[in-house]
Amino acid sequence: MSSTDMYRRALAQLKDKEASLEKELQRHEADLHKAKENARRYEDQAQRASSASSAKSALSSATRESKKALDAGKKVADIKKKLADNARDQGSRQRSLQSSEKSDRQAQDREADRRRQREKSHAREMAQLAKTNVHYVHLKPPEPEKLRVLYLTSNPGMDLRTDAEVRQVQQALRGAKYRDLVTVEQRPAATFQDLLDGLNDVQPHIIHFSGHGGGSSVVMEGGELAGGSEQAISFPLLVKALDATDHPPTLLVLNACDTLEGAEVILPAVPVVIAMSDNVLDMAAILFAQQFYAALASGQSVGSSLKQAKVKIEAAMIDDEASELPQCISRDDVDISSLVLVKTA
């Protein structure tokens, strides 16, 4: 609960308490008035009494009612003090609430300014990208050839199970219907140079990246022999690399956290991109890749393969929202529900 909500709730509770005290005050003031009236009435009866015994009884009743009036008066005074304390507390909470709301507005203004700066930065990147001579990739008719997958894994922090992911994919392919029509070329500890070399050597239909991502970039190995070095590859730079080939890929898979935002810039060079919309757990990433390639190697379309991968994650009950993390974006002229990458004839 935010500070603003906490102050609002506290202020509402004080107002409810004030209303309750007001009702209680009215009740005790009524009791005080009634007891005073009864005491005066009994005193009058004592003065008019015709006998000593009647006068004594009336005076006793007057004393009793006076005591009730005294008790009621004490309660009235106590409640008025509580009301005064409540009013003071309400004033304090109201000032705190106004200060917290002001802080919230300032935080919202700062976030809005940061968002505008990000939008401006994105617009500049798009403008820069537009200046680049990127040839527009057109899908070719199906060809009777093996589906070639360039599998790039990068784990400079040694905190991801990328090797386990590749192993599970290869195992899934061995059991697939058209396993002989799919070949996977892995580049472990992949650098940016490995991407360029893979474009030349493998001429892949699919480029799959498994590692860290976020902020419209992916993190590749830096290439230092000591290990642990890394290089952030921005999407604008990535799209230039993907365009620098006469045999562009059809599909790019970014099996890395927060890679969906901004991935549209890649579409001029690669017609279909699958990326993650948020942080993704290791196990979810592995299950996604395993089932996605098993389905592709069984002759399923890209759309159906993606659906199967999501169902696989959901069935494992890793996270309520994990199955929705893999998302696909494509050019308007591409229908992933009919895009089959494994050609059987």
Rank of each mutant, 00 (worst) to 15 (best):
A263G: 04
R148N: 13
K67A: 11
R64P: 01
L129M: 11
A289E: 09
R118A: 06
P204Q: 12
G215N: 03
Q203C: 14
S338E: 15
P204F: 09
A285T: 03
Q193E: 08
P141E: 09
A58Y: 02
Q300G: 13
D31P: 01
S54V: 06
A309V: 08
E143N: 11
A12W: 00
D16V: 11
Q108M: 11
P326K: 13
E37F: 10
E185K: 15
Q128D: 07
A72Y: 04
S57K: 06
S301I: 09
A130F: 10
P271W: 09
S100D: 01
K36D: 05
S298E: 09
A62I: 06
K177M: 11
D320W: 11
A172H: 02
S154D: 02
A294H: 05
A12N: 00
D31M: 08
H205F: 10
T250D: 13
V302T: 05
A87H: 15
A58C: 00
H28R: 10
L181S: 13
S277A: 15
K15W: 11
L267M: 13
A58N: 01
D194H: 11
A263T: 03
N86Y: 09
E264N: 10
K120S: 12
H122D: 01
V334I: 12
Q171G: 11
G222R: 13
G214Y: 07
R118G: 01
E261A: 10
T259E: 00
A256M: 04
S66C: 04
V253K: 09
R124K: 02
M126G: 02
F292K: 03
K34R: 14
K343P: 00
D278T: 10
Q203P: 13
A77Q: 08
K74P: 01
I286R: 14
L25W: 02
E145L: 14
